[in-house]
Design a protein around this nucleic acid. Structure first.
Lengths: 110, 110
DNA sequence: GCATTACCTAGCCACATGGCTAACCAACTC
DNA sequence: GAGTTGGTTAGCCATGTGGCTAGGTAATGC
């Protein structure tokens, strides 16, 4: 397996990493800026970044001694679509069930 | 923390559990039916179900010796919304950036 | 009422994860 | 060129996760 969605959802399961994503929606930022609000050691934080990058949620380039990180929107869209499909399928089923119930009520009334 | 989203995304990070969710979109099913297509031991599978239930993605009731499992759509919606907000924020930023670039080009031409 | 079915509990194992410290390197700054 | 800054690597630790087997219990079927 090791699906695209596997690493995506795993990446999003951590609050630190979700906070980074939220932060990056208003623009690229260097590692130290991203790290600042989080009360954990830098190496620990770097592991989180690495996981985000591995999941393709984020890209980064190093210039001089600063590494700048940007968000990558495509995987967000992919996951959103997957969730949407499930929800649609589920709601579609409820609609069909509803119609069925209505039809049966109709028939018993005749 | 231990956010709602934490357990949700963690639950969705496993292909077996996603498959269960997909399956449940076409209606409730007993544990053994859900288990059948997966080539893992029942107790292992039960752990997956428990995690889905703990994340509020699924409910189940036992009647006689069979436990029937149904999907719970609300958390799907919540996560979908969260992802959507992030994507919107990101795209909004790109739009503003685009407008800014256009304005600057305009000004240099004058 | 004995056997089968459907699920559950307990307990084990290997590996992944999220945290840390220590030590390092390369690039700026003064 | 010495010191500071920004990031990186290595290695350790506790806990969590996903897998298993063995054994149990309560309904149902024959």
């Amino acid at each position: 397996m090791a699906n695209q969605l596997d690493s995506f959802f795993a990446a999003m399961a951590d609050p630190t990493r979700r906070a980074v994503i939220e932060r990056l929606t208003d623009g690229p930022a260097p590692v130290s800026d991203l790290h600042a609000p989080h009360d954990i050691a830098l190496p620990t934080f770097l592991k989180h970044l690495k996981k985000l990058e591995a999941a393709g949620l984020v890209r980064s380039e190093k210039a001089g001694r600063v590494r700048t990180v940007h968000i990558e929107a495509a995987p967000l869209k992919a996951a959103e679509d997957w969730l949407h499909r499930q929800r649609r399928a589920w709601e579609g089923r409820l609609d069909r069930l509803d119609a069925l119930v209505r039809r049966m009520e109709q028939e018993t009334r005749e």
